[in-house]
């Protein structure tokens, strides 16, 4: 007796597989929707340069990044 796709086993498992597939598809859609909601709540995302500019006082011009001597490479710090 060959095993073929029409074996009763496949019919018995059909409802289980279809049900599980629908549940998984629903879960993917739900996580996607939740992600959209959470991201929208964060507001517009700024690049690091935009964030520095918006953090600088008004009229101060473009902000410049400064590097503390203690984080400079040793050979630069001794110059």
């Amino acid at each position: 007796m060959p095993i073929n796709p029409t074996h009763p086993m496949h019919a018995r498992r059909l409802s289980r597989n279809v049900g599980l597939g629908l549940v998984l598809a629903f879960f993917v859609a739900l996580v996607f929707a939740l992600t959209v909601v959470k991201v929208q709540r964060l507001g517009p995302i700024e690049s690091p340069e935009q964030a520095l500019q918006s953090a600088a006082p008004a009229g101060a011009g473009p902000a410049e990044t400064t590097v503390s001597p203690d984080v400079m490479p040793a050979e630069d710090a001794t110059r």
Partner: peptide, 22 residues
Amino acid sequence: TDATLHEAYDSALPGEAQFGDY
């Protein structure tokens, strides 16, 4: 044989769960 595989399967799972059972 395939036949014994079928018999083993059927005897091992007399009431295979459907989605509604879960």
